[in-house]
């Protein structure tokens, strides 16, 4: 498509405005516990999120090219995730992954350049989802309140991710360590989701930050 504005010199790019801007009241809320808040809720923003997908023989090519450009191979096993976060690659469907990292480069363009020649589809979803990080001793209780998967420490371990419904809306849930989870929801649901999470967390006490 013709882009007549590649020379947009002189205009400073605007900062991204999170779907939750103004909604996070930093501090401790809910029940007070001598051990401190049961869960800490932080927004992860701004993130780059790019979906990559291939079909048939394109898949092997894409996995190689991803490895070359990201230094990380998308995980083969369904519902698993890899990477330290720079980037993190999550399986989201057959031959489909989400590449996530804190925004620092034009990840969409990086991946388009690297993967499109091999036939992969590359789609920027960085603005389409909001992400919360939940961590602390009560984090699995909150997952149990919102979603029906097995959140037992023995069952849902670091490096596993899953898409399900949480508090009645679609969510992608990534286990980072035993008591830390990154949750992705559609941007439009972010406020509703945050409200549900904080309601659920009130009995354990929660820290917003």
């Amino acid at each position: 498509m013709p882009d007549s504005s590649t020379e947009a010199a002189g205009v400073a790019p605007l900062g991204r405005q999170s779907a939750l801007s103004g909604m996070i009241r930093p501090g401790d809320h809910g029940a007070a516990d001598y051990r401190g808040p049961g869960v800490t809720i932080t927004e992860r923003h701004p993130l780059s999120m790019v979906q990559i997908e291939a079909r048939g023989p394109e898949v092997a090519v894409m996995l190689e090219a991803s490895n070359a450009v990201l230094g990380l191979r998308p995980p083969q096993a369904p519902n698993t995730s890899v990477g330290d976060g720079h980037p993190r690659i999550l399986w989201t469907g057959p031959n489909r992954w989400l590449v996530v990292e804190p925004e620092s480069r034009d990840l969409d363009t990086v991946l388009q350049d690297a993967l499109i020649p091999g036939g992969a589809a590359v789609v920027d979803l960085g603005h389409g989802r909001a992400s919360l990080r939940l961590s602390g001793r009560s984090v699995r209780q909150i997952l149990m309140k919102g979603a029906g998967l097995d959140w037992h420490v023995r069952a849902f371990t670091p490096g596993m991710c899953a898409q399900t419904t949480m508090f009645h809306l679609p969510a992608l849930i990534d286990c980072r360590d035993e008591s830390t989870f990154d949750i992705y929801v559609a941007r439009g649901f972010a406020v509703s989701f945050l409200e549900s999470v904080t309601q659920a967390a009130a009995e354990y006490g929660y820290r917003l930050g």
Binding site: Q76, A77, P78, P94, D150, A155, F156
Partner: peptide, 11 residues
């Protein structure tokens, strides 16, 4: 089962 599919309760 598909090649990369895995079954079970875990996820």
């Amino acid at each position: 089962k598909t090649e990369e599919a895995k079954t079970g309760e875990a996820s």
